[in-house]
Design a protein around this nucleic acid. Structure first.
Ligand SMILES: [Mn+2]
Ligand SMILES: [Mn+2]
Ligand SMILES: [Zn+2]
Ligand SMILES: [Zn+2]
Lengths: 142, 142
DNA sequence: CCGTTAAATGAAACCCATTATCAATAGAAC
DNA sequence: GTTCTATTGATAATGGGTTTCATTTAACGG
């Protein structure tokens, strides 16, 4: 309940003359309770299970807020809807996506990261963000 | 005009009981003449400059055909529209995208590719495709 | 060359995730 | 409480992409 993440959101909110609301707390709670790569619609279902009157637009707006405040990162695996994952206290990682069952495996390969910087520098390019998505078949779907 | 690519398209078309049309030839020509990472709307403008009566839907349909026949690959840099590039006789590569001017730099780093396979194998994951996008600032926009 | 047949076309309607609008509601500060 | 504004939910709008459908046209045989 009184999570460190709620503090982060409250800080962001007060620093921007926004307001803490019942709905925003509900969306944050549902987001934090869910350890998956969740879509807005997914989260809408989770939120309305606890707070039936919350609107879908509010979920979208709160997800933007969570992203801006550094609590969530926005992901796009190219399937037509964005997904969100925890960002607070979570290091960078990339994703393997099983095209059979939808399972997502996270990984981080320091050398891949290093060589990315290397090839960028070689081209005079300054990286601000990157994403590496690998699609295929997971071990359970072979 | 009588390109190897036209042969590839004609082969695909005859093998699938489809038909070569004036519009398909026009879309293919515009696509081949353009060396950029082009959106459907971009290509529509290029095509209609030469063949004003071609419809946007036909451009979309022909792009699907080019993708299926191996002449084009579909790219998604997350900006809300798909882009297409030459695939025939073009090796795999990844992209750096300048968020300032839109410039796209292609690169291929064999070790990055190798470590991707490695980390996938370590997780029992079989890669069927992958994409690595690096966003940032190019040398001319620094 | 026709005639036949099925694929292709263009215009317009539709789809669907996401965003914008707006009148009503409710935090926050005094 | 009162006031001031941000927020909300319902709904409309947006925009890239796809589907529909009546009409056109490529392909094939005769
Ligand atoms: Mn993740
Ligand atoms: Mn490319
Ligand atoms: Zn799987
Ligand atoms: Zn640039």
């Amino acid at each position: 309940m009184a999570s460190k993440e709620l503090e982060v959101l409250e800080d962001y909110i007060t620093q921007n003359n926004l307001k803490i609301t019942r709905q925003r707390r509900a969306v944050l709670k549902a987001f934090l309770d869910c350890e998956e790569h969740v879509s807005a619609e997914d989260l809408y279902r989770l939120v309305t299970a606890a707070e039936p009157k919350v609107g879908l637009a509010t979920v979208y707006r709160t997800l933007a807020l969570l992203t801006q405040s550094g609590l969530a990162s926005e992901l796009d695996f190219g399937d037509g809807q964005k997904r969100y994952e925890h960002k607070y206290m979570h290091g960078h990682h990339d994703h393997m996506i099983c095209t059979e069952c939808g399972k997502i495996i996270e990984f981080n390969h320091p050398l891949i990261e290093k060589f990315q910087e290397e090839v960028a520098a070689r081209n005079g390019f300054t990286i601000t963000s990157h994403k590496l998505d690998m699609f295929g078949i997971c071990s359970e779907c072979r």
